[in-house]
Write a protein that binds this DNA or RNA. Structure first.
Lengths: 325, 325
DNA sequence: TTGAAAGCGTTACCAC
DNA sequence: GTGGTAACGCTTTCAA
């Protein structure tokens, strides 16, 4: 790899001059600039980011920590973040935390050691680890007083899901509740629960994890315990898909005998049959917004504690009855 | 952030000594070691990876380029790579190439500028860009004479898919062909085609892209053009799921009237109903193996051109008839 | 308009 | 055993 010194001697100038043309700052004569640029091209020189980073204590790197890239909700987010920062000349390092505090801390350290310019985290609820850091942090999918954040309106989503099922005629609803420690899952659950509580419909609650292995189990359990259920509010689309599968396997009529509503609107929800009605979270946009917000924080030194709440929307597909029908 | 100099003065020794205890090499008295370790703890000192990297021309970073993290096949691979390297104390930078040479080159440059120790690429077939690089590269899902590589046995997969459908009674098969420029897609297609050609069954070929938007379109087209098809070899599971959806929507009996076989065995193939019969590619393991191979290459200076071919397996689920049935 | 040199945080060589 | 110091590749201040 050619270094700045190689370029300097090739062009017959000092490294300082090369640096100036590289960064477009400081005076440099038009002709020497030409010479330097020629040398750069000739040697196919690329500045060493590591050296730059060492000097500036900054790099063109962004850290992103998510629970698990294998969960289809997060790649969308990651793409949003990446697509935004790509435009700005940054690169994104992704870390999977598996909801483990240890892994998350490990990534944060790695990020910090590599001088990332900012971090987006969509993982743990434990905020203590962010406190010491002097790097801007944006929280995605969770909120904390001291940090800027982006999230989707879980409460509106949970409420809407319940309303839809009720409006469209379910009278015996099973509400599935995601992992208790995930604030988002808890929020949408609570909002749906409240809505259900306000109605005269019968309902019951069933706990579930988010992994598809687990979801398949829970689905079986659901129909064993509550064979008469005629409406299911799934904790997310993975779970909804599993439930749908099990329902079809047991010969349920959907949506006439049983309505199912998911949450997230991950790509597969359009691929199953019948296509999943679901509460859409704008995952890609959330990633984009978080990235945009982070960039703002990076530019202004001040920790602007802006909170962005994106709205959700109901996707009326095939596992719910038609409105007024 | 505390630096090595802070630690040195805190412990009353020189930076050289601190460096020695940090790296566990060279002599250092037991007591001074204790003192230094105490100082490190007290200041919560973490060595600056960037400075290390600058000196060594190496970092604990690995570059991974994939076509699109949003395609469910790749997160599995990425996890394999990441889980392996995590154990070894490395961190993985992921880049989405979107099958664009420009983006891929851009990432390679970024990786190289950050002194990554090695690169795994599962993207473009254009190998020229790797040639100049003095960083070990492992190719995933493609092979090239000059590079070590890991891939699954596409030919065996394509052949197997065709055999299964034939054995289990399909006589009018639609073979879906993925993007022509993707070697893997082409290989499995060709192998299936050959197998079909050897049989007496009728068959036709239909082109498709891999995205789910596109797949849904193609699925419609398929049944419009070939309503009598009784067996479909999909280009991958996304496409298979889309086809399955459309088939069900049109009231086809599966698997009795129509068999469908996918490729990849992504998580959703077990979530749809009926569950997709498919050719399993060991994505996670492929990531792991590629990582392991890369680590070997990094340790031995020599470019070992080892090629690893992982075997595929048929997952006998619900969109194919039972054997001998 | 240009160059010399200090400094970013580490490591490793060479004295002591 | 330990410390001084050059070097890694780059940026920036200061003098010329």
């Amino acid at each position: 790899m050619a270094t700045i010194r190689d370029v300097a001697s090739e062009a017959g100038v000092s490294v300082a001059t090369v640096s100036r043309v590289l960064n477009g700052k400081g005076y440099v004569n038009e002709n020497t600039r030409k010479a330097v640029e020629a040398a750069i091209r000739k040697l196919a020189y690329k500045p060493n980011e590591v050296a730059r980073s060492l000097y500036h204590h900054q790099s063109k790197l962004i850290g992103l920590v998510i629970p698990d890239i294998t969960n289809p909700f997060f790649p969308e987010i990651a793409r949003g973040v990446e697509d935004f920062f790509q435009e700005e000349g940054y690169h994104v390092m992704i870390g999977n935390s598996d909801e483990s505090r240890e892994k998350e801390v490990n990534y944060i350290e790695a990020f910090s050691q590599h001088n990332v310019m900012g971090i987006i985290s969509t993982s743990s609820d434990d905020i203590s680890q962010w406190a010491g850091l002097d790097i801007p942090v944006v929280l995605l999918d969770r909120i904390q007083d001291d940090f800027p954040s982006v999230c989707a309106d879980q409460e509106a989503g949970g409420k809407l899901a319940a309303q839809i099922l009720l409006e469209r005629g379910s009278r015996n609803i099973t509400l599935m509740r995601g992992p208790h420690h995930l604030r988002t899952a808890q929020e949408r659950f609570l909002a749906a629960l409240t809505e259900l509580g306000r109605s005269s419909a019968r309902f019951q609650v069933l706990n579930t994890a988010f992994s598809y292995h687990h979801a398949l189990e829970t689905a079986k359990q659901l129909f064993d315990c509550y064979p008469d259920t005629d409406g299911i509010i799934a904790a997310n689309d993975m779970v909804a898909a599993a439930v749908l599968r099990e329902a079809l396997a047991r010969g349920k009529k959907i949506p006439d005998g049983l309505q199912i509503i998911g949450f997230d609107d991950i790509p597969i929800s359009q691929l199953v049959y019948p296509a999943l009605s679901t509460i859409h979270q704008p995952a890609y946009e959330m990633g984009m917004e978080a990235a945009k917000l982070l960039l703002e924080c990076m530019h202004q030194q001040t920790n602007l504690k802006k909170k962005i709440k994106l709205s959700i929307a109901f996707k009326d597909r095939e596992t719910t009855r038609k409105e007024g029908g």
